[in-house]
Design a protein around this nucleic acid. Sequence first.
RNA 1: UAGGAUGUGUUCAGGC
Length: 335
Amino acid sequence: VVSWTSLVSLYCKLGKLAEAQQLFAKIPSRDVISWTAMIAGYVHQGCTEEAYALFCKMQQEGVKPDKVTLLSVLGACTNPKALQRGKEIHALITKAGFESDVRLGNALISMYAKCGSIPCARQVFDKMPEKDIISWTAVMNLYCKCGSVLEAHQIFARMPKRDVVAWNAMISGYARLKRGEKALELFHQMERENAVPDSVTFTSALNACASIASLEKGKEIHSQVVKAGFGTYSFVQNALVDMYTKCGKLATARELFDRIVDRDVVTWNAMILGYAQNKQGKEALVLYERMVTEGVKPDRVTFIAVLLACRNEGLMEDRRRYFTSMRQDHGIKPT
RNA sequence: UAGGAUGUGUUCAGGC
């Protein structure tokens, strides 16, 4: 059983779910660990239906889930439609007497957050006998995501300890709501408290600059980014391109864009949108054509950017053409 | 000693 399970896990990690499933089916005497490995594999690949089905089958066959199994299967509840499922798993956790487990508690908070049930998440948090930094950050982020940044900040202020992830969550929470000044204020407070910013911090800080079109702050953070050695991180690069376009500095953005070696769809979108939003629709369309030529697959955001560019230029004919092409050549539907 | 996980980040038009 041991070696079989190891193999299943290995295949799952390689993303070879079909092979893993075949092996799993052949295991002579599957134990709870084998089941968990397979369930976790499905969850990891985003196959939540399969994961949950397997979890049910496991119980039908009389195998009792342990903490690890429950933790893994909670990851299969990622949207409001899965709330009922999540609640059932919650009940199982309670029934098994695992209620006070910190990691299960954290996973429950995160599950309820993803399923959109803030009161349930909060209740789990409040009832946790022991909370760690992850519990605090999870519940804080939940308030950020639903727009209650005030509530989030209160939680942040009450946190017994803060690590870089907690700071990042709070900074990005403000940045997301276009509260750039507040986000940057926190960024500087973070520096004063000698917390070390990472690439996520810088991405959020750049986002904050973009949200208030602050070129001055943006440039300052740009230089910090380079000094800290994050200048080649793709998330950071994309955020830089976006920041410069939002500040109206298209030439600077374009210089950066041209120097980026591994441009992904987000890089292209940011630059195309930059042109489109700055009344340079023609340039946007030229860039779009190049994107397609280079074999980068456009997505929904590209679609929006291209249509915006056409509209701004009054190119109604082209607009129709792109509209059709997007649907037929790229399989993108307007939303 | 075989299996596990939980918190943060980049691009988003218009309409309603």
